[in-house]
Design a protein around this nucleic acid. Structure first.
Length: 841
DNA sequence: TATGATATCCTTTTT
DNA sequence: GGATATCATA
């Protein structure tokens, strides 16, 4: 009799499900039913007699893990609970906790979130007296992360000269020592960062053969979802665990590998067959999601990539409509067009708002779209992968909990010792830190010693009293932990710490949201306790393994906002980055900002691999669409407060024209020269005039209530003309409007006029740029790009850096970059001619 | 020690 | 432009 599980599966899917005794590579094209195959495979294994606890299933998100568990439970029932299934980080943090002492960590180790990492790095950089303009915590943190993901320990790092060379070139020669000190401190504080959860797991499995053997024995079957996104550390963990039996099943799509910037190695999936020569390969090539047009168009793009696994994705669905390409003059107009089109589309089809998504490359593109949606009264939601601890109140509360669990957690200590304010100022904290450093102890222990010491003067006595109060507070919370239930304990902390009272003081909207976050945090404690109690009743847990705050904290640290689906978000248009869209599907997909230097991004354009990854990203975006995809680009857009020209993305040209319907010729524009200084200035000028005019109108119209609500453009166009004389940026006011003084009458005062001017400006630029410059050039004579007032070798004086010599001059972005050496400062500075107040000597 | 002014950063970000 | 961090100041 055939298993129920196999019913309704295609030939290819079924093969991938039933052959579970060998290493398997399941190449799952977009929309090919990947999750279904993976869950069916696990369910089938259980049905065939594999014990659930012998199965290890790893995912990248909690959400994916939860969804899989749910689906498996529907197929095989309760047994699914015993499957070890979760994210890499959560599964291995649990294993680490069970074995922490073997690698020199306390069982109660806490997890440093990115803020703690940054803060600790800042401290170290300061202590080592390194210049913080070169040693940026973010840069250092990401380099450390890369090293850990590549399993390069500080020792190994310092031993290799190649890294030292790299660091010298990057002007961070001390990086290796920072890395070393960082790791030492983390360990000393009994803390691991996210990357440690993988690195330390590797160390554990390498250094403790008995532990490795135990888990090798336990996990007879290992399944990995989204294998194309695994990094080296994850790859090695999988190799180690599967070394004996080799029963590894990886599922993924190399065409959707988009996380290399976080250390993911597409090579892992590309060379799986070399790593596991006995591997069977299953290809899921039929797309059940999208129209033929979408799938074929996506194929036509991805085939430009050199490195990929061979496969032919196809759809047997409708042909569907062609992909449309919209062109706008500005980012604002792009939003207008896209949202307008989206609204028309849904009106026409009668579909709900939630069937549509707008995808962009970078988060800051969402602002204009939001603006437009809001104005039209269209419900939308922005899907942003923020962490729980992105909320300050959560971070603070967690600080208390962390310190109680692990008093060595210095980052937690620093965060809460004076929050809410209790008169323990920076100098006191600094002193505690120094005491701790001198005695090689944690700050918590140092504080103990501080209050033992006799206080000489009144000021010290007052401080000691305050510190004593704090110590008493933490001690009493520590005691409460042993006597109270999980939820009560959480509430006790929220109250006694003063955080809850703080937010209860008044009911501003921000406070209300903070309170609801705190409430959510406390609720999650209760939920956790109930779940564990149920497990004890069900016999999955021993009675003495009650829910502990450690266990709860561990889970919550690895949680993101995205994991909880908000029911309020029904029937809304979704806005998100392409990255966040992976794995999701929508009937109507809008992809905006298909421009060079945006999508593909500027950084990516520097390397062939970079472009390939962007191409995969575009592939991901396109294949989210079930029915129709619309792509847009703008000729210019705001970037960092400046208007910048852009050219249509090369990806538009790469798409097979057979699947495109477009009224604009995005191909011909390849010929247009790169935006010139003149062009940028001219547009800036127009923009400014328009903006000024608009402000005036709004001021007048505010009382009359007659200001263009319907189109409502221009409210946030920047008005930031730079004054060539002083080099200072000034706010634009009636008084200093140069055009007012000149008696100019050509303010555009409607959107149409404005766009008309912009259009003619662009057309003029294409033909003869010079004329426009003369008519509309800004009054900044110093910014003439063809010549620079300074020359290499000139001696100059700077108001803060003193005297120096110009070493180099480079043309840059409408100005001149001067590399100047200042002997007084002892280093080179790169200055912009327009802004630096340099005086020729 | 709280607050307003100024410097600084700015792709993507599953944990 | 804009959010956030750091700084100066009373």
């Amino acid at each position: 009799m055939q298993s129920e599980i196999l019913k309704g599966l295609s030939e290819a899917q079924r093969a991938a499900v039933v052959n579970f005794e060998h290493p398997s590579l399941i190449i799952a094209g977009a929309g090919s039913g990947k999750t279904r195959v993976l869950t069916s495979r696990i369910a089938y294994m259980i049905e065939q007699g594999v014990k659930p606890w012998q199965i290890l299933a790893l995912t990248f998100t909690n959400k994916a893990a939860a969804e899989m568990r749910e689906r498996i439970e529907r197929m095989v029932g309760d047994g699914s609970r015993y499957i070890r299934m979760g994210t890499f980080h959560s599964v291995f943090s649990r294993i680490l906790r069970e074995n922490a002492e073997r690698i020199g960590y306390p069982t109660s180790f806490t997890i440093y979130e990115p803020n703690d990492v940054k803060s600790l790095l800042k401290t170290i950089i300061k202590e080592m007296q390194l210049p913080d303009d070169k040693y940026k915590p973010n840069v250092i943190a990401s380099r450390i992360s890369m090293a850990k993901n590549a399993l390069i320990t500080p020792g190994a790092y310092l031993a290799k000269t190649i890294y030292a060379t790299e660091d010298r070139q990057a002007q961070i020669p001390e990086f290796g020592h920072i890395y070393n000190e960082y790791c030492r401190r983390c360990k000393h504080n009994g803390a691991m960062d996210f990357d440690d959860l993988l690195l330390q797991t590797n160390i554990l499995l390498k250094d403790c053969p008995d532990v490795l053997a135990k888990y090798q024995e336990q996990f007879q079957y290992i399944l990995v979802d989204e294998y194309q996104d695994t990094n080296y550390a994850q790859y090695i963990i999988i190799r180690r665990l599967s070394q004996l039996h080799g029963r590894v099943c990886v599922v993924g799509d190399d065409a959707q590998s988009i996380y290399s910037f976080r250390g993911a190695k597409i090579e892992n999936i590309l060379s799986f067959r070399n790593d596991y020569p006995a591997a069977q390969v299953f290809k899921l090539e039929q797309n059940y999601r999208s129209t033929r047009t979408i799938v074929n168009a996506a194929n036509s793009i991805i085939k430009k990539n050199a490195r990929q696994l061979e496969k032919t994705c196809f759809s047997q669905g409708d042909e569907g409509e062609k992909i449309r390409i919209l062109k706008a003059y500005t980012d604002r107009e792009e939003a207008e067009m896209v949202v307008g089109d989206l609204r028309d589309k849904l009106r026409e089809t009668g579909d709900r708002w939630s069937e549509a998504v707008i995808l962009y490359r970078t988060n800051n593109q969402s602002a204009v779209l939001e603006d437009n949606l809001r104005r039209r009264g269209i419900p939308y939601r922005i899907y942003k992968g923020s962490s729980f601890y992105d909320h300050k109140e959560i971070r603070d509360l967690m600080g208390y909990i962390r310190l109680v669990i692990n008093p060595r957690d210095d980052e937690a200590f620093k965060r809460i010792v004076n929050y809410p304010a209790r008169g323990i100022g920076d100098t006191t904290v600094e002193r505690i830190a120094q005491l701790a450093a001198a005695r090689q102890t944690s700050m918590w222990e140092a504080v103990d010693q501080l209050i033992e010491e006799p206080a000489e003067d009144a000021v010290t006595r007052a401080i000691v009293r305050k510190v004593k109060e704090f110590v008493g507070l933490i001690r009493s919370l520590s005691l409460a932990r042993t006597t109270m239930g999980l939820y009560d304990f959480g509430l006790e902390i929220a109250n006694k710490s003063g955080i809850l009272p703080l937010y209860r003081q008044d009911n501003s909207p921000e406070n209300a949201s903070a309170l609801s976050n705190i409430e959510e945090l406390l609720n999650s404690m209760q939920e956790f306790k109930e779940r564990v109690d149920a497990e004890i009743r069900g016999g999955e847990r021993e009675a003495e393994e009650e829910a502990t705050i450690e266990e709860w904290l561990q889970g919550v640290m690895l949680m993101t906002d995205m994991d909880s689906d908000d029911p309020d978000d029904q029937n809304k248009v979704t806005l998100m980055t392409v990255h966040s869209a992976k794995g999701l599907e929508y009937k109507y997909v809008y992809i905006v900002g298909l421009e060079e230097n945006l999508f593909p991004s500027m950084r990516a354009a520097e390397s062939a691999e970079g472009i390939e990854e962007e191409r995969r990203l575009f592939y991901v975006a396109l294949t989210r669409a079930k029915c129709a995809a619309t792509i847009s680009y703008a000729e210019m857009r705001f970037k960092w407060g400046n208007m910048e020209f852009s050219r249509p993305s090369c990806f538009l040209r790469e798409m097979d024209p057979a699947y495109i319907e477009s009224e604009v010729d995005f191909r011909a524009e390849r010929q247009r020269p790169a935006p010139s200084e003149e062009g940028v200035q001219a547009i800036d000028e127009l923009r400014r005039r328009f903006d000024y005019r608009f402000q005036q109108k709004r001021q007048e119209g505010a009382s009359a209530g007659s200001y263009g609500q319907r189109t409502g453009y221009g409210s946030t166009y920047p008005s930031r003309p730079s004054d060539g004389e002083s080099g200072r940026v000034q706010r634009f006011t009636r008084q200093n409007d140069p055009y007012r003084k000149q008696g100019s009458t050509s303010y555009p005062n409607t959107r149409t006029q404005f766009d008309g001017q912009v259009k003619s400006a662009i057309d003029t630029l294409k033909g003869e740029p010079r004329r426009l410059v003369r008519t509309a050039s800004a009054p900044t004579p110093s910014a003439t790009p063809s010549s620079c007032a300074f020359h290499a070798g000139d001696r100059v004086e700077h108001p803060t850096f003193g005297r120096g010599e110009i070493m180099r001059i480079e043309q840059a972005n409408g100005d001149w970059k001067l590399v100047v050496e200042f002997p007084n400062v002892g280093q080179q500075k790169t200055l912009l001619a327009k802004f630096a107040k340099l005086r020729k000597l």
